[in-house]
Design a protein around this nucleic acid. Sequence first.
RNA 1: GGAGAGAUGGCCGAGAGGCUGAAGGCACCGGUUUGCUAAACCGGCAUACGUGGAAACGCGUAUCGAGGGUUCGAAUCCCUCUCUCUCCGCCA
Length: 424
Amino acid sequence: MHDLRMIREQIDVLRDGMRRRGKLETLAPFIDRAAEVDTERRMMIQAVEERKASRNAMTQEVAKKKRAGENADDLLVQSRTLSEEISKLESELSDLEAELQRNMLVVPNVPLDDVPAGGEESNKPVRSWGTPREPLSVKPHWDVGVSLGLIDFERGAKISGSGFIVFRGKGARLVRSLMNFMLDLHTGEHGYEETWVPIVVNRASMTGTSQLPKFEDDMYAIKDEELFLIPTAEVPVTNLYANEILAATDLPKALTAYTPCFRREAGAHGKDTRGLIRVHEFDKVELVRYATPETSSDQLELLTGHAEKVLQLLGLPYRVILLAAGDTGFGSAKTYDLEVFAPGAGVWLEVSSCSVFGDFQSRRAGIRYRPAQGGKPRFVHTLNGSGVAFPRIIAAILEHYQNPDGTVTVPEVLRPYLGTDRLS
RNA sequence: GGAGAGAUGGCCGAGAGGCUGAAGGCACCGGUUUGCUAAACCGGCAUACGUGGAAACGCGUAUCGAGGGUUCGAAUCCCUCUCUCUCCGCCA
C-alpha cells in the first residue's frame, strides 16, 4: 500500500465527489476521521523524529568517546531512555497510520467534473451504433444455444454449479475464435502488447487495483492461501508495474490480455441470471492503459473506441452510456459502459466498461513515472476496459444473427476463426 | 516436499556492530579539451515522509528483500516470512 495520505487541501474535493456520488452522508465520517487522524499523525511524526535526531547525535558522541577511550555511561543511559520513548511513540504512530488507511480505503474515487451527478437514473446515453432488431422477435440465446448444441448448461451446473457454463463443439470454438479475433485486433490494429498473466493473485494486487478491501465477498478466495481468483484481468495487468517507476517515454503504455474472470455475484441471484447474462466464470479480453495525467481523459476516449471497434466489426448494434457519479464503479473517475442489444432476451447487455482511474489505483499500487525533464516521479493514470466480455457477446450473436429457421449466421470477421459461416 | 546457497542503489560489486545513504566500476546527465566520432579529465546522478520556503533549495527522519528482536547504536548479530539459485524427490 503506497500512498493513501490525506492531503488536507483535498478534503473539500473528496466531500464534493462523494456528494455527487450521493454517498456523502455515509462517507463523510470516514473522510473527516481521516483528516483528524492525519493531523495527529503529522504531530506524532515530528515527536518521533525529534527524538531520533537527538538519539543519533548521542550515538555519534558515544562512538567518538569510545574511540578516545573516554567513559560514556551517562550518554548510554540517556540514549536508552530515548529509545524507549521512541518505540512507544512509534507504535502509536503505526496505529494512527492503520486508522488513516482504514478510513481512506473505503472512500471511492472522485468522479471527473464532466460526470453527471446522481444515480443510475442520471446515466447519459452518449451515442449508439447500428440498428437493433425488434425486441422478442427471435428466440433467446439460451434456447438457440442449447438446440444448436453450442451450450450445455446442465452439465456446467453439475460439475461446478449454477452459473458455470460448458461450451461444446462450435460453441467452444466460438469462444476460442472470439479470443483470437479480439487479441489480433488489439495487438495488430490498436497497438497493444499482448500479455498472458496469472489468474490467481495475492492480496496486495487486489488492494492495488481497489477490489479490496471493499469487495472481498464478491471474490473467490483460495482457502488458506491468501490468494484470489481474479474478477478481471485488470488486476494482474495493472499491477504488472506496481511499485515501479516508468520512464516518460514508456507512456502511454497499452497492454491487453485474455483471461477467465471469476465473480461470486453475491446477492445477485434472481436478477438477469438466465442463460449467459450473469455467470460466475466468464472469458474476457481486457485493455489496460497507463497514461500521463495530462492525457488520461483523451486516452479514455481512445480506449473506448478500441472496445467499440470490436462491436462494430462483429456488426452488433450497441450504445455507449456515460455513467452517472453514483453508478460509477468504486475506483473509477469516469466510466463509459458499452451495451449490445440482445433481441431474443429483449435487453441491452453491458459487454464493456471503460474507465479512467486517475491516480486512484496508481497511488495504491505505487505505479509512477519520471517526467521527461528529469523531475520528481509522479503517479501515472491508469485506464482499463473490456475489449470485450465473451458470454454476453455470444448471447448477442446468437440472437442478433438468428435466422427464421433457428440457425445463426456467423459474423464475417469470425468466419476465418470459426471455420464456418453458419451455426446450425 | 527434502537439503544447501543467496538477496546491498538503474546495473555490477565492496562492506562483516559506531566515522556508511552506503567504497569502486558501469550506465546516464552537464561541462572542459581534442578536425568529427571516440577517448581523457572535472562535476552531477535514489526514494519516501515530516518541516521551512513563492521557488531554487535547506533541515530532519527512514530505507542495504519484508517484518520482528538483541544493543546506547544494526547493511553487519538473532528469529520469522518472501523471493532467487543449485541438488534430490514428485509431477502437467
